[in-house]
Structure formats: C-alpha cells, structure tokens
C-alpha cells in the first residue's frame, strides 16, 4: 500500500518535471534564440544545422550596437517617457478612483461606464488625430508630446476602483470619525492598503510604455528623440539582414531594464492581482 502511494507520487513528480520542461522549451526557445544570437558571429547565425551554443561569444556585438546608433540617448528618452507617463497615470487614476468610490457625487454609474468605453477606443482611430493635435501644440519631438497623449488613465481607474471597493468600510468610517480629512485618508489608510495593486499597475504600465512603438514613432521624427524600441528597429535598418548579431544584442539591452523591474516586483504582483485588483 505505502509503496504504491510512493510509486504514484514519483510518477507525479516526473510528470510535473516533464511538463515544466516542456513549458520552458516552448516559452524560452525564441528568447534563447535572441540571447544566444546576440553572442554569435553572423556566420553562426546563418549556419545549418543551427548552432545552439556560440563557440566564441561575440561580446563585441554589444559594442557594435552601442556605437551604430545613439543608444545612450534612446535610453534617456525611454526612461523619462516611461517614468513620466506612469507617474501621471498613477496619480490621476488613484485620485479619480478615490473620488468614484469614496466621495458622494452624482453620476458615478455614468462616469464608470464612460471609463469602460474609453478602454476600448482602438489606438488606430486616435493615432492620427492625436498626431495632428500635438503638431498644432508644437509638441513634436518633446517629452510632453511623448508622455501626455499616452497617459491612459482608464485602465488604472478601473483597476483601483475594483480594489477600493474591497477595502473595509468600517476602517475608513472610523478614521473619518477621528477627524481625518480626505488627504489624510488617502495617505494613511487607502495608500498603505493598496500597495500590492499599485505595484501591479506600475509593472503593467512600465512594461507597456517602455515597449510602446507606434506612438513614439509618430510623435518624434528626429533621431535624438527616438526611444529604445524604435532605436532597435532603426538598428535593424542600419545593420540590415546581413548583420543580425548587433541587432539581437540591442534587443537584449532593450529588455534588461524591464526584467529587473519584474524580478524586483514579482513578490508584489502575485499578491496584488490576487488581492482583489483583477477581481470582478
């Protein structure tokens, strides 16, 4: 009897291991290809059968990528744009959601419906008119032009509203009776109770803005205003298909910052989404 249970447990273990392995292979293969390609010579990239481990790691690809295009400037642009947009979104979305949940005001239902509607306006519709708007404002090739039009507050309002609804009302009422005003309530009660959902929001939107391609492409037309993803695509044009190594090296550099963000924030994310952020 016990040996049978042990046997079954062993089979379960092996099956679990195999499944994990399969997932790693499928999810990882294209990325493994990019990461190792960044260290290959061009000949190795185009060799058949494929070379799985670069024989002589070409770290020089990273240097070549950095020298071919002004990567430093692209990183500065991406960092300012991403942080700027995320800060605006976080601040405005928190305030709006707070007003929608905790303040007595008419038309909450309608406002919430409009927020949901804003979630679905396709960016291909707004792209061109927004370009015309920032052109008229003289915002082409500026940080405000890169940041403000994409500071999409709707999803944040949705996320925070859903979370605020799960906060214990008694606690808030008690704080109010103690004479705590709205700014105090936000600072001392609501924010501390919302840390996981805030981190979740930050990670989702840091990634989204860091990776955005279409809007920075439209909102800038000078090389020194481009962001990292466009920079890598530009590298693709400069180096061409004959020289994949530096392109893949540029790709690896482009995704490293977000990898760090995710690894740092991971503990929070799992708690955050589970803690009511994405609950109906």
């Amino acid at each position: 009897m016990t040996s049978r249970i042990r046997w079954r447990r062993l089979v379960g273990r092996v099956l679990l291991g195999l499944m994990v392995l399969a997932v790693v292979v499928v999810m990882g293969l294209p990325l493994y290809w990019v990461a190792t390609g960044a260290l290959k010579t061009n000949r190795e990239i185009y060799t058949f059968p494929p070379v799985w481990i670069p024989s002589d790691p070409q770290w020089v690809n990273f240097v070549a990528a950095w020298q071919a295009v002004p990567f430093g400037r692209f990183f500065v642009n991406s960092i300012v744009t991403t942080l700027g947009a995320v800060t605006l979104e976080l601040f405005f979305a928190l305030l709006s959601a707070y007003a929608l949940v905790f303040l007595r005001v008419r038309g909450k239902g309608l406002i919430f419906a409009l927020i949901i509607a804003a979630l679905l306006v396709p960016s291909t519709v707004t792209l061109l008119p927004n370009y015309l708007t920032i052109a008229r404002l003289g915002w082409i090739n500026t940080y405000q032009g890169l940041i403000i039009p994409v500071a999409a507050v709707a999803f944040g309002v949705f996320l925070f509203r859903q979370h605020f609804l799960t906060l214990p009302r008694d606690l808030l009422d008690a704080a109010r009776l103690d004479g705590c005003g709205h700014p105090g309530l936000i600072r001392h009660v609501v924010l501390p109770l919302s840390q996981p959902v805030i981190v979740t929001f930050l990670v989702i939107y840091l990634v989204a803005h860091w990776n955005d391609f279409l809007w920075p492409l439209v909102a800038t037309n000078r090389l020194e205003w481009r962001t990292v993803p466009i920079g890598v695509a530009y590298l693709y044009q400069v180096e061409g298909v004959q020289n994949w190594g530096p392109i893949l090296a540029g790709t690896v550099m482009a995704l490293l910052p977000m990898l760090v963000v995710y690894v740092v924030a991971q503990r929070w994310i799992v708690k955050g989404i589970g803690g009511g952020a994405l609950k109906g």
């Binding site: 790693v24 990325l31 860091w210 890598v232 790709t251 482009a254 995704l255 990898l259």
Partner: peptide, 18 residues
C-alpha cells in the same frame, strides 16, 4: 515564474523580429 513572463516583457516590436 520570472522566466515565464519574458514573452510579455520583451517589446513586441522585437519579439516579432525573433
């Protein structure tokens, strides 16, 4: 768990090149 998220973290503009 971190590795699993890579396809989402990599910019689409780049993963589509891969």
């Amino acid at each position: 768990r971190a590795a699993l998220l890579l396809p989402w973290i990599v910019p689409t503009a780049l993963s589509s090149l891969a």
